[in-house]
Amino acid sequence: MHLSSDELILWQHGFFKLNATIVTTWALMLVLVVGARLITRKLASDVHISRWQSLLEIIVVTIRKQIEEVGLSHSEKYLGFLGTLFLFIALSNLCTIFPGFEPPTGSLSTTAALALCVFVAVPMFGIAESGLSAYLRSYTKPTFIMLPFNIISELSRTLALAIRLFGNMMSGTMILGILLTITPFIFPIVMSMLGLLTGMVQAYIFTILATVYIAAATRARQEAED
């Protein structure tokens, strides 16, 4: 038994290695991209649309609405990043329904990579929105004394993002594995269902937190506008 799918190495050549995390990620990417491509290939701007198009529109519009509700006015700019974050984590967690599937989000490397992406994206969006100086000044607010605390907060929340998702997903998978050995019937199914719910909630939490961080970083400009 292994804690992370990173440990399951399929191919290695020196520093480069192909572990289960990367392979499952590629598989999920393939599903997402091919699925999206297949549906969006025949998009209709008419009133009558296909069910799949309707599903995608609901997903996209809901994500955009959530982003706007958090406080980001130009949701289209953040839709690519935050939407992909949600879709990737949600699909990854949803696929735990398949027996033997180890979600990439159960690997700390993946969650760390996603958290790092958020860690980089937040200042990037902040700087793009309000400029470098305004963004940097936001670390000294409300007073200059808060600068170290703000920097610590920035790092710790990134760490928290990575650990929270990893912990939840890894624990879910681990519990399911342990339960299968103890009570192989019925109970693992209940736990699997609970795992699905937890997975969706985690995807939502991760995305919403990332949105909140970006919103906080871009608030300098909004405050200036107000």
Binding site: I22, M29, L32, V33, T84, F88, T110, C117
Partner: peptide, 20 residues
């Protein structure tokens, strides 16, 4: 894996932006 996943994620962001 962290680097690979970060790159994978960024590629996915670009692909989904383009196709979704």
């Amino acid at each position: 894996t962290v680097v690979a996943q970060a790159i994978n994620f960024l590629i996915l962001v670009w692909l989904l932006k383009r196709f979704l």
